[in-house]
């Protein structure tokens, strides 16, 4: 089956910095994929390379089986930048009409697409208001809608929910789910692991410019951690800042919650509890299945926000 998007061996350096170091991944038609990685991992460079804004040093990018060079037009592609790339003194409708015309939509088709975009983004009743009067969430929705005006078959979103309240984030993911149902392939970068876990069909983890894992959350857990569970221990008081943690433990910012993966509950849990007790009195403990966060830490050795 032809992939909607296929990136093979993408490499790009900026001076001494390797932003992409041979990254490869693919996206099927109608698939919603989350591209995860810490800051500087290469996510934005990857998005820009696919959009034709970055000239790759090596590797290739194909859209629906056709390899595209940087200067090639990409009518099947919609790109939603991290910034709010809309004209704030124009109304929502004016923005959509302007970008639609620039992307080659005209006449009745443009009118139809603008009306669809306004309905889809829930902005129909505010269509005649200048964008500067919109809330952050509304501006984000319009930002996405402007990228869909020419009816692309692949949508790339760079951090589409950054700085957006949880309610608006849910709404944006609902909008993306509609697109997915309509057969649009969606690739998004995000810092919100739990969202990616819950909303994306598949997750691609990128670190130091390489794809370190790809699959559903369950597949990634199995790949990275095997049939493991996560033991979380909550201390009554934060442990010392310079306390030495035993192998496998991670501690959160408050220094009162510790986590470690365990395979054999009967053997590992008591041993790990004893290790935690060495750092302070244990207030509470629980055992859960491993999350994408655990997978991420296991694969990259660091938290997503580092």
């Amino acid at each position: 089956m032809t992939q909607a998007l296929e990136v093979a061996g993408a490499a790009k350096s900026f001076g001494e910095t390797k932003a992409l170091a041979g990254a490869s991944f693919a996206v099927r038609q109608g698939e919603l994929v989350g591209l995860l990685g810490p800051n500087g991992a290469g996510k934005t460079t990857m998005i820009k390379a696919i959009a034709g804004r970055v000239e790759l040093d090596a590797g290739s990018i194909s859209l629906f089986g056709r390899e595209v060079k940087r200067k090639d037009k990409r009518p099947d592609l919609g790109v939603v930048p991290q910034e709010l790339a809309v004209y704030k003194l124009l109304t929502a409708r004016e923005n959509l009409e302007a970008f639609g015309a620039l992307y080659g939509v005209s006449g009745p088709a443009l009118k139809e697409r603008v009306n669809w975009a306004l309905e889809w983004s829930g902005l129909a009743d505010r269509a005649k208001e200048p964008v500067k009067k919109f809330s952050g969430g509304m501006q984000r929705r319009l930002n996405i809608a402007c990228s869909l005006i020419h009816k692309p078959r692949i949508l790339l979103l760079d951090e589409p929910t950054v700085g957006v309240d949880p309610q608006s984030r849910e709404r944006i993911y609902d909008m993306l789910a509609v697109l997915k149902r309509e057969g649009v392939s969606v690739v998004l970068t995000t810092h919100h692991l739990e969202e990616a876990e819950r909303r994306c069909e598949r997750v691609v983890i990128i670190d130091h410019g390489r794809i370190v894992a790809s699959g559903t959350t369950a597949e990634l857990v199995t790949q990275a951690l095997g049939a493991t569970r996560v033991l979380a221990v909550h201390l009554a008081e934060p442990h010392a800042e310079n306390a030495e943690l035993a192998d496998g433990w991670t501690s959160d910012e408050s220094r009162s919650t510790l986590r470690v993966t365990v395979k054999d509950l009967v053997v590992d849990v008591p041993r790990r509890l004893a290790e935690a007790a060495g750092l302070g009195a244990v207030r509470e403990m629980n055992v859960t299945g491993a999350s994408l966060q655990d997978v991420f830490i296991a694969l990259t050795g660091r938290e997503l926000r580092e």
Partner: peptide
């Protein structure tokens, strides 16, 4: 450039 609209314009037919 700062708002990102330039990138959007560059991606268009213009």
């Amino acid at each position: 450039e700062e708002s990102g609209t330039l990138g959007r314009l560059l991606g268009s037919r213009a």
